[in-house]
Amino acid sequence: MTDDMSRYPLTLEGDDAPMVRFQNVTKKYGDLTVLDRLDLDVGAGEMVTIIGPSGSGKTTVLRMLMTLETIDSGVIYVDGEPLTHMERNGRLVRANAAHMRRMRSKIGMCFQHFNLFPHMTALGNCMEGPVQVLGMSKKEAEERALELLDMVGMAEKRDQHPARLSGGQQQRVAIARALAMRPKVMLFDEVTSALDPEVISEVTGVIRALVDQHNLTMLMVTHQMGFAREISDRVCFFFDGSIEEQGTPEMLFDSPEKERTQQFLSAVLEAN
């Protein structure tokens, strides 16, 4: 598919420019179109939650933003600049590795299965990025890591390896690890789905504190409707690779307009 690149701006400017913009983004795996011409803006400091049935493309949205997946057409912007593309002689071309590296530093991600580094302690996990990537001194990185571990309630377990931590504890360390890189945008992909019910609140509590106390832009995929409703500025319902409906939590949960949204929500309610 050819995409006329001249229709995409080189930068997003102005006070109302979003922190994240997906413009006309299509993602395919072979013949399967996973996301179809997606348009989605996330404002600076906004918390947007993505809900929807399994396989609707929610994870793919986050993975594209984290540059874990390439896109087939369209442009993703972060913080006013294109992420997937860069400017060459007044037009947008595919981003090279250096450009992606620079842009990637603005984004942090937490995964469903935590993906902590098993050969490092909780503290080591949180120092790795700052020392190896940001070039911070060990002392400074340790101070910052301890602050963050303290914030997520894991300071006492700083010297434990992930194998010795519960799922909820691992996920909290993973959040601290991502925050240690000082991202502007945080991505959470079903961060409580792999957890036992009784520890879910440990992790949602940390995310809630982030929403309250920090000016992070956040994009979260979750199946926990109650939590989504409570902390989101906006909720997007994904269906089959596009946004079927979006709005404030009140709008989407209390008076959804689309039939598919209603069906999905009642199915989820029944399951609980």
Partner: peptide, 18 residues
Amino acid sequence: VPKGQWEAALALNMSPLR
């Protein structure tokens, strides 16, 4: 080595060598 380890390292913006 699980794929998630590569992805977590990339999410920390580590270079391929690192």
